[in-house]
Design a binder for these strands. Structure first.
Length: 943
DNA sequence: GGCCTATCGTA
DNA sequence: GTACGATAGGCCA
């Protein structure tokens, strides 16, 4: 069997798409701003197949021009495919170049899909005595499987599986693979727009196949069906036949199979190197060299592979004599070849320090270091509620120590105390990934963390704010090392998940020290990257000090009055029930009001309130607020629905949810600020989100009354920047008229209205001011006439005129916006007043929509981000002064342009002036900053 | 239980 | 038009 010649046919587009989407949450962007995800994904698959299988014959098949025959038969065929992403279009020429350099044949035929080409070639090769492996994730290919033709499917999470006849029988519930065509024809395929039989999904299709064996036989025996199903299928016989045709892979493509053309040969390594260098695929290049260099033949991996299988030696074939493996194509038992180093492939010295003596020696060593990475292991995710299970330390690549703690919390405290000299040391730098978490955990044991900090998560956030910053991803990206996954250790989330405490100590040690080890290595890497991006100052002077400030704010929490919310809840329930009843009466039926799907059907199918209802992107009727608002004036039911929506939202998201967030120990609410999430530099708040507490509507605003001072000795103080973003754009653009308005302290929207509508300030109408206000805000987001007319009563042309007049009034503002876009085009990024960068990879996209979005980002990011920079500075300065003066008053919350404090009554006047001074002077520009301070018995009163 | 979509709360 | 997070429904396994 192993002697049989083997042909591998790759379905290029399917693999490219798969590769692209594998990186979708963390796209690979090279230094030129090119999204290389698709290229990397595909090339990885290609090398992976070669490395695992050592095929002697291989080709890559592309689509070109789509399927002429299928579109003729059914114009909608594949019509609802989304447009190919830009990055994929750009990827194709690179992939073709790579394939050419590797001397791998590319098969294309105008007017045929890759499916058809692969199918035809597979059948031809079968006649020539080949075993053919169709490399594709696309299940349509199952119909081609035979004794000599297999599907070779990439699995999620790595590895491949081979589907032969038995697998097809099992997965599709068919006797013969050809029946897969009937199966697909019956159930249809949304992605290819094969309609299928209405009402028939996977389950029913399997049932029909078992019973009737084919589409034709089913359609000939529809009299045996019953009820709705009978009607539907009988009405769709033609559709059934058509669907089957569409699903059929053609086997008569005019291609020829000359085996010598498909032989895999040695690549042109120089040419490959050139293209890989251009793309910045360093690791892939190493991988390629390994893959094609016979001297590596006896590597450990190859040995594991062969010894784990029956030892029947394969006859040497093709280029890869030295590492020939048995050619069954069955890969289930093979070790995973991810391309990453792991704990198994790397020398390491991770030691458990579990005795008083070993801990003492560990401490002695640590105290001699300048910089040490530490990482706490705990019983859960909520830092303020968990118990400490262990702490790992590392300060040298590949080495580290783990201190484990017992369940007894008093003992834990004692052991932790031994390390106080380390945590309190002002001279040893503490390195960590998301140090805020560790600081909070240690605070449960009254153990402060002092001295310089280096947080790798935050470092990377500054280096590339659009990426995600999990340690696992960072490690794979920067160290080519895949850490032990937490899932391996404690299992998947949910039912059987273990606590870290239940993991054997040896494994805890390996896992925890590895994390510390990796984090320490990442630091070395990121120091350089911060420096080259001129981000070191922002990191050291702003983000790192902020870690401690946020930790303190989160630990402090805020007082909540749950009884007040309970009363609110009762009132809301009354109104929700009343409205629900009224709505059902008007609709003439009961349904789930909270389901937009059901609501849409009731309003637009049954009641037919509109001729041509707006649809969402998934094809459902849209019932969003702006859609319903149009109808509100004509229909009582719509007004009731909007009111119901509002109350229901308030109740479920705030009134009923917030009391559950009260910490049982502190009786306060402790939000968690995410310092490395928002791409612009803002913070975000979660668990619970305290940055979106209602204020706009009367009813919603009541929720703020539940946020109250610590006790009767305190009041709540709120300090707001007034128009900070407009002030920033005025200062950055040096638009004199706008700057002057701010210097004069006049109402900016009235001032704008007076200028664009050319009327004296005192004659500006409410409507004019309101429209001017909308444009002022719109400018910050990158207005369009369309957006503006949607937000105001203005028509599209009136909106356009208003925008034009606005730009004439403030010409420098327009010039500034254009200059930001130009800067982004030239440099690939824009930056804030403190040099925080945001990379805009789509700024030169040929797709106008994509490019437009990037251009709006180029304008908005520096403004939103500079405002974020400034309030961060203010927070640090206020915190430091509060610490120095030892105030009882505490900073509690940040809401983008607002800070909220528990203000001790004795300190009220003092801190008012400190807060105002620090906020207004946090960053000096040509426009003054203005801060309004309010004080009250709750958050609403403080405004 | 996990993941996606639609909706809506804030600056 | 920018930036977020939480909820419920609905569908998957």
């Amino acid at each position: 069997m192993a002697d049989q010649k083997r042909l591998f046919l790759l379905d290029a587009f399917a693999l490219i798409f798969r590769g692209y989407y594998a990186f979708i949450k963390n796209p690979r962007i090279n230094s030129k701003g090119l999204d290389t995800s698709a290229i990397l994904g595909f090339t990885n698959s290609l090398l992976d197949v070669i490395k695992r299988e050592r095929p002697d014959h291989l080709a890559v098949c592309f689509d070109r021009g789509g399927s002429v025959d299928r579109v003729e038969a059914f114009p909608a065929y594949k019509a609802n495919r989304q447009e190919t992403p830009e990055a994929i279009k750009l990827a194709i020429p690179y992939i073709e170049t790579i394939l050419k350099a590797m001397h791998i044949p590319i098969i294309v035929k105008n007017g045929y899909e890759a499916d058809d080409i692969i199918g035809t070639l597979a059948k031809m090769a079968e006649k020539e005595g080949y075993k053919t492996f169709m490399v594709t994730p696309d299940k349509d290919f199952a119909q081609l499987v035979s004794e000599n033709i297999f599907m070779y499917r990439p699995k999620f999470g790595g590895g491949y599986e081979t589907w032969g006849i038995p697998e097809i029988q099992e997965k599709f519930g068919v006797e013969r693979p050809e029946q897969v065509i009937d199966f697909l024809g019956m159930m249809g395929d949304a992605s290819d727009n094969i309609p299928g039989l209405p009402g028939v999904g996977e389950k029913t299709a399997k049932k029909f196949l078992a019973q009737y064996g084919s589409m034709e036989n089913l359609l000939a025996n529809t009299h045996e069906l019953k009820g709705k199903m009978k009607e539907k299928v009988e009405a769709s016989k033609e559709l059934g036949i058509l669907s089957k045709q569409l699903a059929t892979i053609m086997l008569d493509v005019p291609v020829e199979f000359h085996e010598e053309n498909f032989e895999l040969s040695q690549p042109d390594l120089d040419a490959v190197k050139e293209i890989f260098t251009e793309l910045e695929f360093r690791r892939l290049h190493d991988n390629l060299i390994k893959t094609f260099s016979p001297s590596e033949a006896n590597s450990a991996k190859a040995e594991t592979k062969t010894t784990s299988k029956t030892t029947k030696k394969a006859a040497p074939v093709g280029q890869f004599d030295l590492f020939a493996v048995p050619g069954s194509g069955n890969v289930d038992e093979e070790v995973t070849v991810s391309g990453y180093e792991t704990i198994k492939t790397t020398d390491h010295f991770y030691q458990l320090a579990n005795t008083p003596m070993s801990r003492k020696m560990l401490l002695q060593k640590m105290l001699k270091q300048q910089s040490v990475c530490f990482d706490t292991e705990t019983t859960g995710l909520k830092a303020l509620e968990v118990e400490l299970v262990g702490v790992a330390f590392s300060w040298e690549k590949g080495k580290g120590y783990y201190v484990a703690f017992p369940e007894d919390q008093a003992e834990t405290k004692e052991i932790l105390e031994e390390f106080r000299p380390f945590f309190e040391s002002m001279t040893i730098e503490k390195v960590g990934q998301n140090l805020k978490y560790d600081i909070k955990v240690l605070s449960n044991y009254n153990m402060p963390v002092k001295g310089l900090l280096f947080d790798t998560m935050i470092a990377h956030y500054l280096i590339n704010p659009d990426m995600r910053h999990n340690m696992d991803i960072l490690s794979e990206t920067y160290l080519n090392y895949q850490p032990v996954s937490i899932v391996e250790l404690i299992g998947k989330k949910g039912k059987n998940q273990l606590s870290m405490r239940q993991v054997p100590l040896e494994q805890q040690t390996e896992y925890a020290v590895e994390d510390a080890d990796i984090t320490y290595q990442l630091k070395e890497h990121f120091i350089k990257e911060l420096e080259s991006g001129q981000l070191t100052k922002l990191f050291t002077d702003v983000e790192i000090p902020l870690v401690s400030v946020l930790s303190a704010m989160e630990i402090e929490g805020i007082n909540l009055d749950p009884n007040f919310l309970n009363e609110l809840s009762v009132d809301l329930t009354t109104d929700v029930d009343r409205l629900e009843k009224a709505i059902f009466e008007q609709a003439g039926e009961e349904f789930n009001l909270a389901s937009p799907k059901q609501l849409g059907l009731v309003l637009f199918d049954n009641l037919k309130l509109v001729d041509k209802p707006k649809k969402t992107k998934t094809g459902q009727y849209s019932t969003a607020e702006d859609v319903l608002s149009y109808l509100a004036k004509d229909h009582q039911i719509i007004r009731d629905i909007l009111e119901w929506r509002q109350y229901n939202k308030l109740k479920s998201t705030y009134v009923d949810a917030l009391p559950n967030e009260i910490n049982p120990k502190t009786h306060r609410i402790h939000t968690v600020y995410a310092q490395a999430v928002a791409a612009t530099g803002r913070l975000s708040s979660n668990n619970p989100n305290l940055q979106n507490i209602p204020i706009r509507t009367e009813r919603g605003r009541q929720v703020r009354k539940a946020f109250i001072p610590r006790d009767e000795n305190y009041v709540l103080l709120a300090a707001d920047y007034s128009q900070i973003e407009l002030r920033i754009i005025a200062a950055l653009s040096k638009e004199d008229t706008m700057m002057q308005a701010f210097k004069d302290g006049v109402d900016i929207h009235t001032s704008t209205a007076s200028k664009v509508f050319n009327v004296p300030v005192e004659e500006v109408t409410r409507e004019q001011r309101s429209n001017a206000k909308t444009v002022n805000f719109g400018i910050i987001y990158g207005v369009s006439a369309f957006g503006l007319s949607n937000q105001t009563d203005l028509s599209r042309s009136e909106a356009k005129e208003l925008i034009d007049t606005y730009y004439e009034t403030y010409p420098k503002l327009r010039a500034y916006m254009a200059s930001q876009v130009d800067f982004a085009r030239d440099h690939g990024y824009v930056e804030t007043v403190l040099g925080r960068r945001r990379y805009l990879k789509d700024i030169n996209s040929r797709n106008a929509i994509v490019r437009g979005a990037a251009e709006r980002n180029a304008v908005n990011a520096p403004i939103q981000g500079s405002a974020a920079d400034i309030i961060k500075l203010a927070m640090i300065n206020i915190y430091n002064r509060f610490e120095k003066e030892n105030f009882k008053s505490k900073m509690l919350l940040q809401v983008h342009d607002e800070l909220v404090f528990d203000a001790h009554k004795d300190e009220l006047e003092t801190i008012k002036s400190i807060i105002k001074e620090e906020m207004e002077n946090a960053f000096i520009m040509d426009v003054p900053l203005d801060v309004e301070i309010g004080v009250g018995q709750n958050w609403l009163e403080a405004h």
